[in-house]
């Protein structure tokens, strides 16, 4: 029962992430939506798959390794995209930009 709740939670988080990507105004705020909701949604779907599948224990742990790798790699990818966008001259919308003021 609880594995289907995890699956449903993952699907809801993925849908909210894609809604955020569609509605937010610029690159940086869209990265917020894609990074967090992809990480949370993929991790909860992987946990649900590890509970559902009828494999031995050591193979179920591999799903958790995948979830760990997603949680490690996704923020780094977001950092690389945001820094590259700022270096190539895309101005963020908003009230203050200390990063441009400090001369980067």
């Amino acid at each position: 029962m609880i594995e289907y709740l995890f699956l449903l939670l993952g699907i809801i988080l993925m849908i909210s992430g894609s809604l955020g990507v569609l509605r937010f105004p610029d690159v940086y705020t869209r990265l917020h939506a894609s990074t967090k909701c992809d990480t949370g949604g993929a991790m909860s779907i992987l946990i649900a798959l590890a509970m559902v599948s009828e494999a031995p224990m050591l193979i179920k742990v591999k799903f958790l390794i995948l979830a760990f790798l997603i949680a490690m790699i996704n923020p780094m990818v977001a950092h690389a995209i945001a820094r590259g966008a700022h270096k190539s001259g895309i101005k963020p919308e908003g009230v203050i930009d200390v990063y441009a003021r400090d001369g980067f």
């Binding site: 809604l19 509605r23 705020t29 009230v95 203050i96 441009a100």
Partner: peptide
């Protein structure tokens, strides 16, 4: 994403 009450910016 639903309410769009954002106020973004970069700080240090």
């Amino acid at each position: 994403a639903i309410l769009m009450d954002i106020n973004p910016g970069i700080i240090k």
